[in-house]
Design a protein around this nucleic acid. Structure first.
Lengths: 198, 198, 198, 198
DNA sequence: TATGAATGAGCTTTCATTCAT
DNA sequence: CATGAATGAAAGCTCATTCAT
């Protein structure tokens, strides 16, 4: 059991499940899924491996639960987008909100980005692919030129990459985030204008 | 051991090293680095695990050797770019040649893309980061607006993503590749024009 | 928790102990003792593992209690047999009643038959061995020929085996049971006649 | 590595596979399959658990290999029996030879007898059942009375039981074995005579 | 009369690696 | 140029059991 500096046992009141999710995500994002062992997670939490299995049936289930909890906003976003007319404004709003969603759950998406091979084999892989397809269907016009379709995909990828790769570009993080968003919005706008000339 | 239909052992004429690299890359790209075991590689080649160790000191070294062999063109490209004036034409040429290099070594770059977490911890991680930085230094003007810098990075990412993610966009592969290139070139061009108005 | 169709909790009126025994025996007989986990038993009953420990001190104790409850008739039978003269009629009656006892507690005896290695290490192992010895002492004449002693043991084993192995012999179950009994009685009779010629 | 009393390392010349089989069978027979861990087997042999996995793919495979090696004679016996006319002499010979086969591979059959629940779930379960059926088909006349059919099955069971249960019957082991065989032969003979009256 | 939360010991299995031959 | 045989470390997972509530 966890012992604080004054020697008393830490109360855990039933937040252990949440703590497992937090630590797991942190380690998964830091080292990758396969390189993170349950032993490591347990040690950080000062519980035994078996305790993890009280709360989750498998290692994969820990990840799935984190994924489901943190990607609900994106699910909602897609639902919202489906109900809107596919105007330029909608598309821009999608990009903006998606950018926000990525920012809010940054560690998870860094993990997804950096562990694609792993994710692909896991249960969340398909779910995620479906989501991305859903997003694309909203911002891409099916009869747009190939280049314009790619501009839209590129916009999404710019948002993704923006989260992590830009780390070694100099500049204020907040400003960088805004610039990333601007470029993405611009790409979607170009694509829309290409297909629907004024 | 591999036995042909007439019962004789297959000739391998000292190309085993090459065959190991080929199979390893194939499996790494398909399943990820950690999920690919040396046993698996050895079995596919019909040799023992120990044989792998005759040709390579460690598992990581197999990957390193593949990486070094296949990314030499990119190293050369950067060397070439450094010696050129940073004109729009140079930048466009860099994007074009980089696109070609990615296409030529597709499996390796798919692997790099999908196993970033793993690659980061490995020896090739730093090398790769350096290369990317090298490329960026050529196509990015240091005094460009933040958005234009990001457009350049986005161009590179579009090329990367273009290789793999576009798979489930419909269209002729060759055409798609060209469209991807066009978008990337366009991004770099926009960035350049933004910084050097006619 | 178990919830009936009208949403009320199932009444269990303090029969949980009995239900544990029932389910445990069922699973032990079906899958073996070691392969049956307390989790499994608890899940089937829709209680927690800890609940099992309220009613029984250990896993072994569950088995012991089942064994004791279900083998009392056999204990009584031996007691009765000991008080009888060791005539042919007594022996035949023992065989008949033992057969009946086995039939009445079939799952338990199938379990005993199929998990001898486990039972041997458990507390009930010795008890059971003692019982068998008790039975043998009644139907075997100590000065009988070795073959006749074996015929008696064989009679008991025929009864045991009859319960389970005969499953894949075709025929009406009831008839098969009677035939098994007949063969066992016959063996004991032969043994008796061999030792006490008319 | 194994160290002898004079401190020299023991040569193992490639008999390790055999030694694994021997020790495994010994422990399986002594304690049961599930209660015998690979750690235990490895320790007795003074090798690591991983060494076991060099020679066998799984724990079950160790058992399977032992089973296959040791029951070949019985397979042969059945093959032989199938080719013979189903006379009384053949049946008696089958019983005799089966008795011999059981004696030769006693530990394996004690294991099978005492771990039926386990064996049933394992790959060898079906194989064994098939063998027993094969044997029965030879010694049982399909148009025999139910009791006579049971006598034949009882004969086989007497042989099985004879191996292990008779341990606590007093008498010279060799003599006991012969008596067991006699009873079994007698049962088959009675069954035959019941169906084919002189 | 039970549950929620956890533990410690152990399991089977896999892996990268080594080395004498 | 390669194999056969093995190792040490670790992994994911399960189990019987405990105990405060």
């Amino acid at each position: 059991m966890s012992v604080t500096m004054d020697g008393t046992k830490q109360q855990r009141r039933g937040n252990t499940r949440q703590r497992i999710q937090d630590v797991a995500l942190e380690l998964f994002a830091e080292q990758g899924y396969e390189k993170t062992s349950l032993r490591e997670i347990a040690e950080r939490l000062d519980v035994t491996k078996a305790a993890l299995y009280y709360h989750f049936k498998t290692k994969e289930e820990i990840l799935v639960s984190v994924f489901e909890d943190l990607t609900r906003p994106i699910e909602d976003l897609i639902e919202w987008g489906k109900g809107q007319p596919h105007t330029l404004e909608t598309k821009q709003e999608i990009v903006r909100r998606y950018h926000q969603a990525l920012t809010d759950a940054e560690p998870l998406f860094r993990f997804m980005q950096e562990n694609q091979a792993t994710v692909r084999e896991l249960r969340i892989g398909d779910t995620f692919k479906d989501r991305m397809r859903g997003l694309r269907n909203i911002i891409i016009d099916p009869d747009a030129a190939l280049t314009d379709q790619i501009r839209c995909i590129s916009a999404l990828f710019t948002l993704h990459a923006g989260m992590f790769v830009m780390q070694d570009v100099e500049g204020d993080p907040q400003q960088k985030r805004e610039a990333v968003l601007e470029v993405a919005v611009d790409l979607v706008t170009q694509a829309h204008r290409g297909t629907h000339p004024a």
